[in-house]
């Protein structure tokens, strides 16, 4: 099953880069809920407008997607991040000079980043293999130690540590991927 999903994602990545029409629809079907959920939390009633901007920007900038830097989900979350920042900044005030652009971005960024980071992690957690997901959930949300997790899941301690490390590694990578190159 995991292999099938991986194959499907890889295919979508390929089709995205080559600009096949089906890739846009598949990307919308697969990641529309994530993008819209992020936008809803950040901009409320204007979520659809911002989500539309996210998918248009993603489609126009599809060549900038680099699978080695994270998943499509992380990439789209990153676009959602700066589109929402743009929106919030625009809503809050009249046009600024381009020089003020960065300062304005920085004013709304921390709150946006907190929300997007959590959504990226939540999405990444869902895509982890179940054993890794269980280990991370027990460690972070039930505050169990590694030996306690090992006992609970009836796994060798080394396996628990391996699952924890690889799970966090994947989540860290997704977070980094969601920031892309736009680090204002």
């Amino acid at each position: 099953m995991t292999a099938m999903i991986c194959e499907m994602v890889a295919t979508l990545e390929d089709r995205l880069v080559t600009g096949e029409d089906s890739a846009l629809r598949d990307m919308f079907d697969e990641y529309g809920p994530l993008v819209l959920s992020i936008c809803r939390r950040l901009v409320g009633d204007d979520a659809e407008d911002v989500a539309q901007q996210v998918f248009l920007a993603a489609w126009r900038g599809r060549l900038s997607f680099d699978p080695s830097k994270g998943s499509i989900a992380a990439w789209l979350a990153g676009i959602s991040r700066f589109k929402s920042i743009d929106f919030l900044r625009a809503k809050g005030r009249r046009p600024s000079t381009p020089d003020e652009h960065i300062a304005d971005r920085q004013a709304v960024e921390p709150a946006v980043n907190g929300v997007v980071d959590q959504m990226v992690l939540a999405s990444a957690l869902q895509t982890l293999p179940p054993a890794r997901r269980d280990v991370i959930t027990l460690g972070f949300y039930e505050n169990l130690s590694h030996p306690e997790i090992a006992a609970r899941l009836d796994l060798p301690l080394g396996t628990v540590k391996s699952h924890m490390r690889r799970g966090l590694e994947a989540m860290q990578r997704e977070l980094e991927g969601s920031y892309g190159r736009r680090l204002l």
Binding site: L34, S37, I38, F140
Partner: peptide, 13 residues
């Protein structure tokens, strides 16, 4: 980020 609280549903809508 994991420590910052319960994770939201990333597909709530």
């Amino acid at each position: 980020a994991l420590r910052s609280g319960p994770l939201p549903n990333p597909q709530s809508e």
